[in-house]
Design a protein around this nucleic acid. Structure first.
Lengths: 157, 157
DNA sequence: GCCATATGTTTAGTGTGCGAACGAAATTAT
DNA sequence: ATAATTTCGTTCGCACACTAAACATATGGC
C-alpha cells in the first residue's frame, strides 16, 4: 500500500512537471492527448485517425472528441478530412503547424525528462523499467478478471 | 525516455483501476481528493483542516476549493465549522457519513491494490519503492531549480 | 427496398478550474 | 489609537471537458 502511494506520488510529480510544456502553448491536457496520439500514429505509419478510434485510445466519449477536436481545428493544429472509403467517417490529421508544435514540445520536454532521471544510474533505470513492465503485464491480466467487480464510473478525470 | 513512458503507463493503469472505487459512489476525482486528504489528516491527529490548507495540499486555488467543498457539503459528507481562534477561518471536517464512505472505499480499494502487486515479490516491491523514493527526491530538488524555465500553466488537469 | 448498426454532431446539464473583485477579520506600521 | 496591509473565504464571470439522449447521415445484411 505504501508502494501504491509511492507510485501515485511519482505520477503526480511527473504530471506536474510535464504539463507546462504544452500548456505554455495554450494547449490543455485533453488537447495534448489528441496531438500526441496523432503524432504517435503518424510515426507508426498511420497518417490519420478516425474520430472514433481517437476516442477509444483516449478513453473519452464521442461528444468529447468532437469538442476537443473542434478547438484544435479552430487553432489550425489539426484538420478533419472526409474519408473516401466511408462517407460517414472523418479522418483527423495534424496540419503542418500542428506537427511543428508537437515536435517543439517533445524535444524541449524530452531533454528535460532525461535530466530528471539522472537521480538513478543507468542500471537502476533499466531495472526499474523491468519492474514496471512486469507490474503492468500483471495489471492487464488482472483487469480482465475485474471488469464486473465495480460499476464503471464516468470519465477518467 | 522509455522509462518515462513506462512510468506514465503504469500510473495511468493505477489511476484507471482506482477511479471506479469512488466514482461508483458518485464522487468525482477532486471530491475524492478532499475526502482522502481530510481522512488522512484525521488519522494523523488533525481533525479538521482550513480551506486554504486544503487548497495548498491539492494544488488548487481558493475559488475551486469553495466549489468542490460546496458540493461535498450538499452531499452531507463534509461540514464547515467556524474556527474559534480566527473568525475568518472555516475549518472543514468529515461528517459521520463522510467518514463511513471513505472507510468503505479504502477497505475495498486497498485489498484490491494488494492483489495487484502480487506480480512482484516482496523483495522486489521494496526495491521498487526505494527507487521511486529516490527518483522522487531528485524530482523535488529539480523542481526547485526549474521554477522559471517554463511559464506556469493554468490548472493541473 | 428495409431495418439494424455505425459515425459523428448537437443539445442540455454538471463539474472543475481560473482571475478579478469583494467583505470581514487579523496583523503590521505609523 | 488609527491607518495601511495582509489573509481568508466567497461570489461573479468565463472557459473547458465530460456525460446522456436525441439526431442526421451513411453503411451493410436480409
Amino acid at each position: 500500500m505504501r508502494l501504491f502511494r509511492a507510485l501515485l506520488r511519482t505520477l503526480n510529480h511527473l504530471r506536474q512537471v510535464t504539463e507546462p510544456y504544452y500548456s505554455s502553448h495554450g494547449i490543455s491536457g485533453p488537447q495534448w492527448g489528441v496531438l500526441r496520439t496523432l503524432h504517435r500514429a503518424q510515426v507508426e505509419g498511420t497518417k490519420s485517425l478516425r474520430l472514433t478510434d481517437l476516442g477509444e485510445r483516449l478513453l473519452i466519449r464521442p461528444p468529447s472528441v468532437t469538442g476537443v477536436v473542434d478547438r484544435l481545428e479552430r487553432m489550425g493544429l489539426v484538420r478533419r478530412v472526409p474519408s473516401k472509403a466511408d462517407r460517414r467517417v472523418r479522418e483527423l490529421r495534424l496540419t503542418g503547424e500542428g506537427r511543428k508544435l508537437v515536435a517543439r514540445v517533445l524535444t524541449r520536454h524530452s531533454s528535460y525528462v532525461r535530466s530528471l532521471f539522472d537521480g538513478l544510474t543507468l542500471r537502476e533505470q533499466e531495472y526499474l523499467r523491468g519492474l514496471l513492465d512486469r507490474l503492468d503485464a500483471h495489471f492487464t491480466v488482472f483487469a480482465g478478471h475485474r471488469r464486473n467487480d465495480v460499476p464503471a464510473g464516468p470519465a477518467k478525470t
